[in-house]
Amino acid sequence: MAYSSVALLIDGDNISSDFAGQIMRRSSDLGPSTVRRVYCNAATKTGWDVASSFRIVHSGAAKNASDIILSIEAVELALVRGIEAFVIATSDQDLSHIAHFLREQGKHVLGLGEEKAPSSFRFACSKFDELNHCATPTQNTEDNLINRTVLAVLRKHDPHRRGLLISRLNGFVRRENDEIKIKDVKEKTWAKYLAARQALFTVTGDGAERMVHVTGLSEDT
C-alpha cells in the first residue's frame, strides 16, 4: 500500500550510514518520504553527513538523547502534521515505545534494523525488515572523498537544484580536487559512478543531456 506522506526517521547513533541506500529503497516502497531525518551526535562523524538526502538532527552526547528527540518529533509529525506512515531505522529496543504509540494512532510503522534488533522492537512495528550487510557496499575513504567533492560542486554550481550536466562535472570536480580522476575509479565514467550511488545522486536524461541531481531533497530534509 502506498501512503501520501511518509516520515523516515533514523537512529544514526545505532544504524550505520552504509545502509543509507538500502533504507531509502525500503522507504520508497511506502510512498514519497516528505521527512527524512537522522538523529545522532554529529560531532562523532558517523558518516551520515555524506548521505545528503537526509537532514541531520544533532542530539548531543547525552545518553539516549537521539531516541528521545526522535520520539518527540515522531509524535509531532503524527499528531500535528498528520503523517500517515513512519519508517524507523534502529536496532534499539528503546524505540519500541514510540512504535507502539504510532500504531495506536492508526499509523503504519515499518521498522528497519539489523539482525541484532530485539523482538520487542520488531513486534512493536506494523512490519519489520532486516537490513542486509551484503546488499549495501561499505563506502571506502576514496568514495567518501569523491562524494563530498561532487556534493560540494553541486552546492556551488547547482544552487537551485535543477541539475548539472554530467559533461561539465569532471571539470568542476578537478578544480575542487585535481587528484580525483574518474578513470582510476572502478566505474570509469561519471555516469556509471553516480548511477551506482542512488542514495546520494540521481541521473536524468540521455546522452549529452544527462544531468546529475542530489537525490530526493525536499524542503524538510
Rank of each mutant, 00 (worst) to 15 (best):
R81M: 04
K192L: 15
Q93A: 15
R161Y: 07
G207T: 06
A2V: 15
L194M: 06
E114W: 08
H58P: 00
W48M: 08
A20L: 08
R25M: 13
L8K: 09
R37M: 11
R161S: 12
E219Y: 14
V153S: 04
K45G: 08
A42F: 05
S59N: 11
N147R: 13
Q139D: 14
M1P: 14
G31R: 12
C125H: 03
S91L: 03
T136R: 05
C134K: 13
E187Q: 08
A152N: 11
Y193F: 10
V87W: 02
T46R: 13
V6P: 00
L77A: 01
S52P: 08
A152T: 14
K186S: 07
L30T: 03
L79S: 05
N14W: 01
E219F: 15
S167K: 15
H157P: 02
V109F: 05
A74P: 00
D184I: 09
D92V: 05
T138P: 04
E142G: 13
H58D: 13
A62C: 09
D129E: 13
E114R: 08
A196S: 11
F101W: 05
A43P: 08
K188F: 03
V50W: 07
I72S: 03
M1N: 12
S33M: 12
R36H: 06
K188C: 04
R25S: 15
E130T: 04
D29T: 14
L95Q: 06
T136P: 00
T189H: 04
S4F: 06
V35A: 10
Y3L: 03
I69Q: 09
P137D: 02
A42K: 14
V109S: 07
K116T: 10
R81A: 09
A99H: 00
L200Q: 10
K192A: 15
S16N: 06
I83Y: 00
D178M: 11
D49L: 10
I88N: 01
R155G: 14
L77G: 00
T215R: 12
E73Q: 05
S5C: 03
V80N: 03
R162M: 11
A208P: 11
E187G: 02
N177S: 07
F121S: 05
I182Y: 10
V80I: 10
I98H: 01
G163M: 05
A152G: 09
D29H: 11
L110D: 02
L110A: 01
A195S: 12
S96L: 03
M1D: 14
P118H: 14
N140E: 05
I166G: 01
S33E: 13
P32A: 09
H58V: 09
N170D: 08
D67E: 02
R26P: 14
D178G: 10
I88G: 03
D143F: 12
F123S: 09
I69W: 05
A208S: 14
R26E: 15
F54G: 06
D184N: 13
A199W: 07
T202G: 09
L77I: 03
Y193D: 04
G111K: 06
K116W: 12
T215S: 07
G216N: 13
G12D: 00
V38H: 10
L30F: 10
K186F: 12
L217D: 02
A51N: 12
L77E: 00
L217N: 02
L200F: 09
A99R: 00
R155T: 15
H100G: 07
L102Q: 02
V185D: 02
G216Q: 08
A195N: 08
A85T: 06
W48V: 04
C134A: 15
L30E: 01
R210D: 09
